[in-house]
Nucleic acid binder design. Structure first.
Lengths: 195, 195, 195, 195
DNA sequence: AATGAATGAGATTTCATTCAT
DNA sequence: CATGAATGAAATCTCATTCAT
């Protein structure tokens, strides 16, 4: 076969193609079991082409993760803008924040799989979520909305754990909708399951 | 170095040594980034010695996982024996079951890291936990102990997620004790945090 | 040495080179005592290069064998086309078929060594030869050309054994020519050596 | 398990056991695919025990081959003793020699498999057979018993090839008896199959 | 922009053989 | 006479990465 540039070829398109395939593969097989050779085979380009767009395997993985985190950050900051606008219904607000996040996850299942579960940096991401939630809960607690008996960092960790697992098993599988799930979660954490 | 047996060498000791080092490494680096070459270097034996005791890298990993699961199963079945002995306090019972499990985790942090987080089979293990918890919750719900408003499989998934995360961040780090944590968790899920 | 492409390198050439060296080595040392490391050393490429062109050691061996068998099959089918065209001289026909085969062997000594002696599949190949020869002999026997006293499958086995040994010791060594050998063989089997 | 000498253990017995198992394995799997580890496992002894009786894998293989060759040599020399006693029937004599050899093969199938097919030295052995047969045939030829038209070394090679193949496929499989086979072979080589 | 060809570095695994007891 | 424990010396194969075109 002849070498050189293909007709109709477009760097941006090729890069996007490689990214999309990489996302699929990282989501399905994880970092280690995803092979550059397989990505380029699916994209119908050669290995050097890959290195034209990405410095390394690690680099494309990072790029994917950053894309996930960036979108998530935008979403979160948007939610934050609304914060405290209505002081009336704290529960509704939290629920709506949750819905936003779960919706994002459900709309980006593969990206979520990678950025929320496989990436090393997911650890940090979740820690930040915990910190953020803890802060909010503590504030509300001080305002007297919540019981004084709970160490809010534990509650926050617990909530993030719930979200983590439920996203994986209910959202990414399509078994529950973000709305339903958010409602149940908030109910549990607000009121408990005891009669 | 000469071939053959070392002075004072003992197979059981060597095998245990290899296992212990493998547990450390798998816990720290995960399956892929754990190298047989590193394990044997730390154990000060050669690679063939490893294969004297384990059929393959996969095999030693399985052996570790099975050890974790076996111990966990024993623990669980013991807890079950006590079940229903005192019909009085459902909450206490659940709490005590949780304490048992968290205590086991805290006493076997590396094994837990591997068997509860890294192993493929952890997925199944947790699914069984969810199934088990769901069954119990449903039963109590029917008996009228719990609110009729919750889909108990979601509650169970949520709880397992909470345990997953809290084990990792509070128990394995030593930040919380099993007793404290279990109490908080049960309180949250029974009563919620709302005043 | 630096990585990447060598000047003037050509995949087809490299593959052929590897094949040729492999044929030499398999012919001389047999499957087990032929090492990939030695093949690539002779070809002045690295081990991964070998795996660029062949999936495994087994695969290159198979490729060589199949090349041998394919050529032999073509030869045989060509011979068959001529079959029965002239009903006059059965002996001549057989002799000419033999010459064809022995000539092929003499022109491809290393390939023959591998495909006719070392390969597992050589067993099957020879069994088919025996079957084929038996069929022909039986047919001629029925037509009254041959004595009724011989179990033709034994004759066929015997003949194949003769070919096997004579190829190895007379043809592959260059001690006899295909023509001479074929003549003697046919004479022996047709008339015997007794005065 | 305790170390040291087993009760009832007897060096000669153990050595014989190892030899017998080795014969089985070499005959079935060939030199390379026969593993010392497998031999000792079947013999229920350990690897060092093997090296108590044999210097190496190569050494036990040689020992087996020599046993085969020795027995075969005895047989042949016995046959030779009878040679020329009766000058009457050359054909009968040859046939009887053949029967002796084939009978030995049929009675020692595994040893034959190794010593006549797998051993490197089988090559030499057969060359000697060829030389011996050639000598005899040439002598008879000079005496006028055989046609002057045949190069007797080729006839001898052919015959040995026939024996080689027929032993493997008719004798070692039990499909033909030594008597029947010897008769057919001699008939072919003496008289040919043409009517 | 893209490819063909190649390699560095290393991983897992196997097997005959040998000390120390 | 025999074993338990270990090793030397490889062999096959994989994969991210890079040079020359």
């Amino acid at each position: 076969m002849a070498r050189g540039r293909k007709v109709d070829s477009d760097g941006a398109v090729t890069k996007r193609l490689l990214l999309d395939i990489a996302i699929e593969q990282f989501a399905e097989y994880g970092y280690h079991d995803t092979k550059i050779s397989e990505i380029v085979k699916e994209a119908k380009v050669t290995q050097p082409t890959f290195y034209l767009y990405f410095k390394s395997k690690e680099a494309i993985f990072q790029e994917i993760i950053e894309s996930f985190q960036k979108q998530l950050r935008i979403l979160t900051s948007e939610s934050l803008l609304e914060e405290n606008i209505e002081d009336s219904s704290l529960k509704k607000e939290i629920q709506s924040g949750l819905i936003n996040m779960l919706t994002f996850f459900s709309e980006n299942p593969m990206l979520t799989q990678i950025g929320f579960y496989e990436a090393e940096s997911a650890r940090e991401l979740k820690m930040n979520m915990v910190k953020h939630v803890t802060g909010n809960l503590e504030a509300e607690k001080k305002l007297g909305y919540f019981s004084q008996n709970y160490p809010m960092n534990i509650v926050a960790e617990s909530l993030v754990g719930s979200i983590e697992r439920l996203t994986l098993h209910e959202i990414l599988t399509g078994r529950s909708t973000p709305d339903d799930l958010a409602k149940v979660l908030v109910d549990i954490y607000f009121s408990g399951i005891q009669k």
